[in-house]
Design a protein around this nucleic acid. Structure first.
Lengths: 108, 108
DNA sequence: TTCCTTTCCCTAGTGTATCTAGGGCAGGAT
DNA sequence: ATCCTGCCCTAGATACACTAGGGAAAGGAA
């Protein structure tokens, strides 16, 4: 029984958002999400890497091998132009849905 | 390719919340969510009924056949005591996760 | 009357996202 | 030498919303 930690559909948004702040390697993205969410959100590696491939396949991010701060081989991802568009769209969608849910939670 | 309209995991919460306002039949629950969300959220029947069975099986809601306002046979669901607890828990979880996502969206 | 639309319930199968649970390699510290 | 950590990867399980159907009965329209 897989315990779902993230809301399905939000991981892409979170990744894109982090990359909006500059290139990052996979591990770093997960750390950053964990940190920024004040440890509420934890991205498992088994979710992270498949998600990165998805995003890359759709042309929203692109990868390049490099060297991490800790002197380790790491794949750095960065937003493409269409990724930037996608980020804006997903953020808007999130805002809309979150607001809608808030309405239901207040109005019932 | 199934287009996901709802955030996975939030449907239970929405249903419980609506039932927190009093008993409702399935169709009515979906209408209410649609209405309260200002037509942003649409619950498909293929999502709704399985969800109701899930919730019933877990003991959070219970069903009783009755008559709808339109004089039709309808199954009315209502919250159980443990359903009330579950509603509180899920609402809290939602608040926490939504806030966490908001943090990431602001902080990156 | 017959038809049609609406309301209400139901289910099998599909898709996809996240998870669990592994595996691997290399740097740096002990 | 050994271990821990950082970093990448993958196969299979699970969960949940979806599509795409089905059916019955009320009430109005033709």
């Amino acid at each position: 029984m897989a315990k779902i930690e993230l809301l399905q559909g939000t991981l892409d948004l979170l990744i894109l958002k982090v990359l909006g702040g500059g290139p990052q390697h996979g591990f770093g993205i997960a750390q950053r999400i964990h940190l920024l969410s004040q440890a509420v959100l934890t991205v498992e590696e088994g979710s992270l890497y498949p998600a990165l491939y998805r995003l890359e396949e759709k042309g929203w991010i692109e990868a390049e091998w490099g060297q991490s701060d800790n002197n380790r081989r790491a794949k750095f991802y960065s937003l493409t132009k269409s990724g930037r568009k996608q980020l804006a769209a997903e953020q808007e969608a999130w805002d809309s849905v979150a607001a809608a849910i808030a309405h239901v939670l207040q109005g019932a």
